[in-house]
Amino acid sequence: MAVEVRIPTILRQYTGGAKTVEGTGDTLAALIDDLETRHPGLRDRLVENGSLRRFVNVYVNDEDVRFLGAEKATLSDGDCVTVLPAVAGGAPAAR
C-alpha cells in the first residue's frame, strides 16, 4: 500500500530535492520508518523520542494528525500525507 508524502522545502535535502515521495506503512510511525530507509535523516526531523515533534505539522488528507492519534494515526492505501514545519517564534521573554 502506497502513501504519497509531500515534503517541505527545508526537508528536501533528505529526499534529493523531491517535493513528493512515496512510502508505505499502516500507521504514521511505520510510514516514517519506511521513509527513513530511503531518506536517512528524515525521521529525526519529524520524531523525537518516538513522538512527533511539537513544531512539525503533519496532515493526513488535510487533517491535522494531532487529532487522528499523532504518530499512531492509521493510514490507508492512497492517503496523502503533508509535512509542514510550524511557522512560530516569539519574543525573548517566551519560554
Binding site: R66, L84, A91, A94
Partner: peptide, 19 residues
C-alpha cells in the same frame, strides 16, 4: 493561534491552506 504577547504560531489548518 497563540494569541500571546511573547509567542506566535500560525494555526495548523491555516498553515496548510496557506501552503
Amino acid at each position: 493561534a497563540a494569541r500571546s504577547p511573547t509567542f506566535y504560531e500560525f494555526d495548523s489548518m491555516d498553515l496548510l491552506r496557506l501552503y
